[in-house]
Amino acid sequence: MGSLTRFTTSAPGRRRRSLPALLKQRPGLPIRPVFQPIVDLRNGCVSGFEALARLMQNGASAPHADFLAGLPRADRLWLFETMLDQSLAAMKGFAGPEPGLSISVNVERFLFLEEAFLTSLTQILDAHAYQGSGLVLEFLEEGIIEDEARMIEAIARVRRLGVRVALDDLGRAHSSLIDIKTLPVDILKLDQSFVRGLAKAPHDLQFVLSLLSLARGLGKALVIEGVETAEILDALMILGVEFAQGYGIARPMPADQVRPWLDSYKVPVATRSPRSLLGSFASHLMVVETCRILMHQPLPVARKEKSKNPDNCEIGRYFNRCGLHDTAFGAAHKQFHRVMTCYGSDYPSWKAGADGFADTLAAAIAQTPTA
């Protein structure tokens, strides 16, 4: 899947339907969506928004965690209907020069198995003249699915409406791998807990890289949540992550602030050269991964000689610009270059050099004050 696809708000000839039985008001629950951007890291452009439910009280908003726990199960469908209706309506006001924006709306997993859910979804899509594939429904990865066959068919029915499905908060429950393997979802969203702590645990980037490889192999898009700093964003771009979301890009905003934000958004220059120590760590992971792929495949002599120079790689150039080659991790980087091409002839030395640089750099990152 190359992108989060396009959202179209017009459908010539398609009859709009009213919603007489839907969206019944619940006393004391004025729900409004706020929207958080999702950015395509390959080109820096905004690809869409996730709609997040907020409870409005005295002019202020409270996150859904503050009211969802007390909302009866019978009212969860109403919450989804309200969010979907308001989000689709708001998206019509976001139209601009962008080639197409997706909108993601959360839905609880159990609703997929209820016939009323599909009926409501179809009616709301018709009422908004939805046509295309830009709507994404995100459901939580929460526990074991008791009726796997029914869930697979329910997801298939939703996708036949031109709606994409995402597995949200991946990694928060024990059944993740089972869900990835069996459910016909289009998008995987990694739980924010895996990246928020990268400044203190850079080695966790290895998990992100592994999941990225898995997602690509399965033909699914990967969205990384919890991107809170420029350093994390830098590292994810180096790894080749497609989509990212988090405070480091933008906080969730009301609908009337989205268009002004889009107009002022500056598309960052796409680069695979590190601009931070965390980005350098990610770049090293990519080098190590490449070496593992090339193991037992002879390299040309010229390539071997060139690789011995630590100034010839992107990490070395970044270290030189910042005067970092005289540090402990700079010395470890030089040592790795001395043994970089030995993975076939002297694997223990190569591994010691690769791990030594990774560990030394990780220790320096963990000691760096965060903003």
Rank of each mutant, 00 (worst) to 15 (best):
M1N: 07
G2K: 09
G13F: 15
G13C: 07
R16K: 13
S18R: 11
S18D: 12
S18N: 07
A21H: 13
L22W: 10
K24Q: 12
K24T: 14
Q25R: 11
Q25K: 12
G28Y: 12
I31E: 03
R32H: 10
R32Q: 12
R32C: 03
P33N: 04
V34G: 00
V34T: 06
F35E: 03
V39D: 01
N43C: 14
G44L: 13
V46M: 08
F49L: 10
F49S: 01
L55K: 04
N58I: 03
N58A: 13
D66Q: 13
F67S: 04
A69C: 06
R73D: 11
A74W: 08
R76N: 03
F80Y: 05
L84W: 09
L84F: 13
Q86M: 08
S87T: 15
L88Q: 07
A89V: 02
S102Q: 00
V105H: 06
N106C: 05
V107Y: 03
E108V: 07
E115R: 14
F117R: 04
L118T: 09
Q123M: 11
L125Q: 08
D126A: 10
Q131D: 13
G132R: 11
L135V: 11
F139H: 08
F139R: 02
E142D: 14
E142M: 07
A149K: 09
R150S: 11
M151C: 12
A154H: 05
A154E: 06
R160P: 03
G162M: 08
D168Q: 01
D169E: 07
L170M: 10
L170Q: 00
G171C: 06
S176N: 14
T182G: 00
P184W: 15
L188A: 00
Q192M: 15
Q192N: 06
F194P: 01
F194W: 13
V195G: 01
V195A: 01
R196C: 03
L198Y: 05
A199N: 09
K200V: 11
L205S: 01
L205G: 02
V208M: 02
V208A: 02
L209P: 00
L211D: 03
L212E: 08
L214K: 04
R216C: 00
L218N: 02
L218M: 15
L218C: 08
G219W: 09
E225M: 05
G226A: 05
G226I: 00
E231D: 15
L233A: 06
L236S: 01
E242I: 04
F243P: 00
A244C: 07
A250P: 00
P254C: 09
Q257W: 14
P260H: 07
V267N: 00
V267L: 05
A270S: 12
T271R: 07
R275G: 10
S280K: 06
F281S: 00
S283W: 12
M286L: 15
V287P: 00
T290D: 11
L299E: 12
P300M: 10
A302Q: 15
A302I: 14
K304H: 02
K304A: 00
K306F: 12
K306V: 09
K308E: 06
P310W: 15
F319A: 03
C322Y: 10
L324A: 04
T327L: 10
G330N: 05
G330P: 02
A331F: 08
A331V: 15
A331Y: 07
A332D: 09
K334T: 13
K334Y: 09
K334M: 13
Q335A: 13
F336C: 03
M340H: 10
Y347G: 00
F357A: 03
P369I: 04
A371W: 13
